[in-house]
């Protein structure tokens, strides 16, 4: 029997931006898939191309100043091949997106219930009354107390956490197969962050939504995702299960990211940091491993182009991966 088709399949995604200095590549050779009800993390520092990847899949990059190649299949339809009009029809219906800043991502002049009902009516032929009722229902589902009266509130009358719940409700109201969450908890404080992540896990499980969780925070990934794709300088450098990544990272960048997490029990030690980027801006990228200028394990062989090596259950873009016993979140005990 054939395995169930993944909800989202991204193949060979490439994104470049047209600038005054010519075309600059922001994302290269990105492929991944997300199954129904699965949460996959896309991790990397600012500028690693994770948000560009998300916006490209949603077709939200500016048409005139960007080029997108490759494919992104959602429920068997290639999002990257659709016309703007066709895209508007599937956005919000087959795939939804939530953003980092719940403060500015909602229209300040419309009541939140109306903003959700509007989404319903953009995709289904239902009455205003039915759309409004659906809005109240989903607001209740994302944990907004007293949803019926809160649906008449304006965004500025809600807290940051509540607004992010509204964003989630709006993205999920048409039960899309895929949800892309771009740093959904970065702007929130830690307790609210935990609640929102819990909510995403529950909704993904209950509705079988495939979630792409974009974050720079490995703690968030550890708490929420089953698999992780680490991006660096526009490329996926490591892809594997979350536990494997955290316990035994095979790419020096993944390992370095893990070392950057502050930990209890390490008194009076300076916080770890990855050396400053040198020559990593897109136009002066090294032709070999892009992490080479910052890597503590660089060798002569790293100057050659680095393919993503398929190791069966994981993939890594490091030719020296099997020579390095890189530290993970748990110290290895010598046997």
């Amino acid at each position: 029997m054939m395995a169930e088709r993944p909800a989202l399949v991204v193949r060979n995604l490439e994104v470049s931006f047209l600038t005054v200095d010519g075309e600059v590549q922001a994302v290269r050779d990105v492929s991944f898939e997300v199954g129904r009800g699965e949460i996959v993390g896309l991790v990397g520092e600012s500028g690693s191309g994770k948000s560009a990847t998300a916006l490209a899949i949603m077709g939200l990059l500016p048409v005139v100043s960007s080029r997108v190649r490759g494919s992104a299949m959602v429920s068997g339809v290639d999002m990257l091949a659709l016309s703007p009009r066709q895209l508007a029809r599937v956005r919000g219906r087959d795939m939804g997106m939530i953003f980092q800043e719940p403060m500015s991502a909602l229209d300040p002049l419309f009541r939140i219930g109306d903003q959700i009902a509007e989404t319903v009516r953009a995709h289904q032929r239902v009455s205003r009354r039915a759309a409004a009722a659906r809005a109240v229902e989903i607001l209740g589902e994302v944990g907004i107390p007293d949803a019926a009266s809160r649906s008449r509130a304006y965004p500025h009358q809600l807290s940051g956490g509540m607004r992010q719940r509204v964003m989630i409700a709006m993205a999920l109201v048409s039960e899309p197969a895929v949800l892309i969450a771009d740093e959904p908890t970065t702007a929130l404080d830690v307790t609210v962050q935990a609640q929102i992540l819990g909510l995403l896990r529950r909704l993904s499980r209950d509705h079988g939504t495939a979630v792409v969780l974009i974050t720079h925070d490995l703690g968030v990934v550890a708490e929420t995702c089953s698999r992780i794709h680490v991006m660096y300088s526009g490329e996926i450098v490591e892809a594997c299960g979350v536990d494997e990544a955290l316990l035994a990272p095979e790419h020096p960048y993944t390992s370095a990211l893990i070392q950057c997490i502050p930990r209890a029990g390490r008194h009076r030690q300076p916080l770890h940091s990855i050396p400053r980027r040198r020559g990593s801006s897109p136009d002066v990228r090294p032709s070999g491993c892009r992490f080479l200028p910052r890597c503590a394990h660089a060798a002569e062989i790293c100057k050659a182009p680095q393919p993503l090596l398929d190791l069966g259950d994981r993939a890594v873009r490091c030719v020296r991966h099997d020579q390095l016993a890189l530290p993970g979140a748990v110290e290895r005990v010598p046997q």
Binding site: R91, G92, G96, F99, S104, A105, F110, A122, M167
Partner: peptide
């Protein structure tokens, strides 16, 4: 602005975004 991107993400038509939301803003 960010909220216009949200409106696109939820699948509104470009004319609704411009004439209803942006003009209201």
């Amino acid at each position: 602005s960010d909220y216009i991107r949200t409106l696109r993400a939820k699948g509104l038509s470009e004319s609704r975004i411009v004439w209803i939301h942006a003009l209201r803003g």
